[in-house]
Structures are given as C-alpha cells and as structure tokens.
Nucleic acid binder design. Structure first.
Length: 424
RNA sequence: GGAGAGAUGGCAGAGUGGUCGAAUGCGGCAGACUCGAAAUCUGUUGUACCCAUCGGGUACCGGGGGUUCGAAUCCCUCUCUCUCCGCCA
C-alpha cells in the first residue's frame, strides 16, 4: 500500500515514479475522491459530535429525574441524517481503499528506468560457463536418461507442470534444501522456520494485492485459504498487526517450503521441463528491518543468495530490474540468473526485493522507534534459492558425457558421500 | 465431533447501559534525591483520522452486524484461546 499522506501532500512526487514503472496515476479521479471523502467525513464527525453531546444531556437530565422526552426527540432527527451519512462515508472510504490497493510501489531512485526485461541492468557476473567437449543436453533429457525425472507419471497424477523425481535426483533435491538451510542458518544468521502452506486472504493481501493477483494463486474450495506461492506469504505475515520492540530488529528468517502457482498468465511459456511448475520447492529469505537499514540489508540478502551459487560453483549474473519489470510491491529488485548450458542462457533462480514500507503498511507491521512511537518496518525477501531450478542448473552444468552427474563438493556430505549420480 | 469458559491499553487486571479512552498494579519516559546506581517520591505514558495557529472533534475494549437517545457493558454471528470428553499422524 502506497502512503496516502504522500499523495495528499506531494502528489507529483508519486505520479512521476509511478509513470516510470508504467502506471498512469488517475490524478483527477483521485483528487475528486479525496475531496469527497474529506467533506463527508467532516460532516459526519460534526453530526456524531452533536449526537454524543445530546446523549450526554439526556443522561444528565435523567440523572436529575427530569423529563428527557423533548431531548430524545431531537436525537431522533439527528440520527436519521447521521445514519445515511455514515453509510455514504463507509462507501467512499471503501472506494478509496480499493483505489489505493491497486497502486504499485514507488521504484527506488537507484532503479533504472525501462519498460521491459531488456532494460534490466547487469550488476556483476561470477564464474564462467563451462566449455563442453560434447554437446550438452538439457535437464529433461539428462533426467530421462537417468530414469529419475518423470513428467509422464506426474501428468497422470496431476496434469501438466508437475514432476516426479526418483532415486538420486529426489535425494539431490532434498540435499539442496538441507544445504541451503544450513548455510543460511549457520553462516548468515537466519532463524529456520516451519510454516503453514496455506494462508488466509488477509495475509495474501498483506504482501501483494489479492484483488489484482488472485488468479495466480490456488484457492481452497469453500474456504478463505490459499496455497502459498512462496514462503514470503506466511513468513512476512509473522509481524502483521504487530508492534515489535526496536531491539528485536532485524528479524531474519529462512524457510524451506513448497510453492504453488497457477501460472495463469504463462500458458505456452517454459512448458518444457521443470523451469516453471505448479509446485516447486524454494528456500526463502525474509528480513524485517529498520527503515534506515533496508538498502544495506537488501545488498546483504542478495549476497546471501549468491553465496549458495558460489558454493555450488554455478556461474551466475546479477541484474537490477528496471522500473517497468518490477513486481507490484517492490521498490527495488535484484534477479540472480544462473547459467543453463541446456538453454545457452542465464535464467532467473532468485529474486531479491526491498519492499520498503509497502507491505508493512498493508499488514500494519510496525516497531517502536527510539522515541517510543510505532513506525512501519521495512520488509525484504529473496529466494535463497529456488530448489527446483538449482537442481536443473546442477544437472546441466555438472553433466558428463556418459550421462552421469557429478555431485558438487558442497553437496556430497548430504548425499552420503556420493561423487556421482548414475543410472541404476 | 460434543460440553463448558473466555478475548479490555506494552503486560497483568477492574469495569455488566450514561459522568469510560477506560480504575489499579507492573513496565516505559521525564524530573527530584544521589558522586553514580538501587530504593523512594513527583509527573507523564494507546492508535488512526478530521478541522484548526493555540486548541477542538471523531473512531477504536478480538472481527462483523443489531438493540438503544446513549454500548467495553445487552442481543446475534464469526474467529481465536483455554478446560474436559471423543477421535487421530
């Protein structure tokens, strides 16, 4: 949720950055709605004050044993007008709330302007793509040859965009999650969490706009519950409607969870393999921090995610998303893209965002500042990393000419010491 | 699933129709005392919004709805918590 005070006091300061991310702010409509709300609210409150004063007089009269009949008749007249006004006010405020609900976050000043992914700006590269002395396969072919990656059986069970893993690859997948959790808890200071895999509509609306993105989520029939599209949903909501003590910040949580996405807008996109699935595992990093720290923490969190790729010796590059390519709630986002020999391209494996107070305002997540006053926290999150895509990256980068997979050194302790995954 | 009890400020806890945004205690903050601290004493201490220079007003006692001139208080409903029984990984 954008800060309505900013819109009231300095509308231009919001309109221009929003235009940069492709959002045309309906200036006249907003001003008219605000003026209407203000007028109705003032009139309503005046009438409420009159009603309260009248009720007090009635109480005093009755206490003295006087007849309050005339006073009570006046009250009736006030209430008749007040009832209608209160209803109108509620409707106007709801319209305003819905309007605000649909406005995306303002991009940070350091975010490059642009309209699409082509305008994203590379920040750094790490590692160099391996030179193969045989034609590298993509992960689908590698997994099928191993007999460990099975999309046909998954389709029989649940349809397209699911996968069944077996044997060495299933274990590799599990090992990756364990490895990531261990690194983030032991080396980066995150607290491991276990959370519900479904959340209420209220929680979903806390991190993004449910009205706008409802179709991207799987909803449970007949209940106000959604399967989480990322652990960001439950974990960030830890602090919803809370005022946390100053000294508890920063809060740093890591959570391994399955993620469920309807991929409603992605039909025909990445249909091959496990790049884009309805269900995938992810290790998510979430930080709840003081506002003045959030951009430093954003750099740190991104580095935490990159550490995993370094330890796995997977080449990657980090890009900053341009204003037109950012998510709804984000003020600034880095995407980390891993090298995939099978696609001969860098592909997103992590997205690290600073939401500033945008989510905190929606969630009413606050801390008590030095002066003892409640103030909105800043929230950040990032994938550290997407487990399924990391598995894909390992298959493609660590494949051998004989169809086997070399296990990265960092994962061997989790794989019972195995150095290779081979067909049984 | 059945029966019962409950939800009030940062915390504990009073308040069962009007003078209650809410007693009291603890905690926090400021001051006094002290070389300093502890103890003690004094004051102060919710959030959001509206109008206005000081200041005034409105809403909020788990959520929503209702009764009433007037609701923390009465009624309905939902959610959650606790106790007992049943069931269960």
């Amino acid at each position: 949720m954008i800060d309505i005070q900013l819109l009231r006091t300095n509308l231009d300061a919001a309109v221009a950055p929003l235009a940069a991310r492709g959002y045309a702010f309906p200036r006249e409509a907003f001003l008219a709605l605000e003026a209407e709300r203000k007028e109705i609210q003032t009139r309503t409150q005046e009438l409420q004050a009159a009603r309260n004063a009248q009720a007090k007089r009635i109480g005093q009269a009755k206490a003295k044993g006087e007849d309050a009949g005339a006073l009570m008749a006046e009250s009736g007249a006030i209430n008749a007008r007040l009832g209608k006004l209160e209803q109108t006010l509620a409707q106007t405020q709801e319209r305003l709330r819905q309007f605000l609900d649909g406005i995306p976050n303002l991009p940070h000043e350091s975010v490059p302007q642009g309209t699409s992914a082509q305008d994203n700006v590379e920040q750094r590269r790490w590692g160099s793509p391996r030179a193969f002395d045989f034609p590298p396969k993509d992960h689908v072919d590698i997994g099928a040859a191993l007999g460990m990656l099975d999309f046909e059986t998954a389709a029989k069970l649940a349809g397209a965009r699911f996968v069944v893993m077996r044997a060495g690859l299933a274990r590799l997948h599990r090992s990756l999650a364990q490895f990531m959790l261990d690194v983030h808890t032991q080396e980066h200071g995150y607290t491991e969490t276990y959370v519900p895999y479904m959340v209420s509509g209220e929680c979903a609306n806390g991190v993004s706009s449910l009205a706008k993105f409802r179709d991207d989520l799987f909803k449970l029939e007949g209940r106000d519950l959604y399967l989480i599209p990322t652990a960001e949903y439950p974990v960030t909501n830890f602090v919803r409607d809370e005022i946390v003590p100053l000294e508890s910040l920063p809060l740093k949580f890591v959570c391994h969870s399955p993620c469920f996405r309807s991929e409603a807008g992605a039909s025909g996109k990445d249909t091959r393999g496990m790049i884009r699935q309805h269900q995938f595992d992810k290790v998510e990093l979430v930080q709840i921090v003081r506002p003045e720290d959030s951009y430093r923490c954003h750099e740190e969190l991104t580095a935490h995610a990159e550490t995993i790729l370094k330890k796995l010796a997977l080449p990657y590059r980090t890009v900053v998303l341009c204003s037109g390519d950012m998510g709804f709630s984000s003020a600034k986002t880095y995407d980390i893209e891993v090298w995939l020999p099978g696609q001969n391209a860098y592909r997103e494996i992590s997205s690290c965002s600073n939401f500033e107070a945008f989510q905190a305002r929606r969630m009413q997540a606050r801390f008590r500042n030095e002066k003892g006053k409640p103030e909105l926290v800043h929230t950040l999150n990032g994938s550290g990393l997407a487990v399924g895509r990391t598995l894909v990256a390992i298959l493609e980068n660590y494949q051998n000419a004989d169809g086997s997979i070399t296990v990265p050194h960092a994962l061997r302790p989790y794989m019972g010491g195995a150095e290779k995954i081979t067909r049984a």
